[in-house]
Amino acid sequence: MSGRAYVFGDNVDTDLIVPGRFLTLSTPEELAGVCMAGLDAGFASRLRQGDVFVAGRNFGCGSSREHAPISIKAAGICCVIAVSFARIFYRNAINIGLPVLESKSAARSIREGDEIAVELQEGRIINLTQEETYTFTPFPGFIMDIIREGGLVNYLKNRSTDRGGN
């Protein structure tokens, strides 16, 4: 997967990604249109399929709203690269099948607009513009499966035969 980089600073919070006033929206289709609306109402309309978000420390801090990673994924972003992620956001992103990659060197080197290719399985981020390669620790197999299958819900559906509940 590959696309252009959008670069953000530290502590990008989920209110910036999907502001509270949009929390009456809940489908990916609706949420795609408000991605990063806290920064710029027109941001989502400029995104292309495969683009990459790059950020500093603590990306996705604040509210537990899963609307934030849903909106990023639905807007076409293929992965988020950051120095570090807030805990709930990280787990939410994996759960919905959005790759979240911790790579300090990538996060510090990539510039706005750089063409970025990501090889998830190999743990490589290739900066085609600056001709650099950065590495990250690849996901374990089951997380790769969750991402490949579009999230934990599909992953469980594809495997479980027990549909209990009381």
């Binding site: 899963e66 939410n92 759960n95 919905i96 819900v153």
Partner: peptide
Amino acid sequence: GVGSTDLA
């Protein structure tokens, strides 16, 4: 706190 998938 958790997101909605973990919540589900």
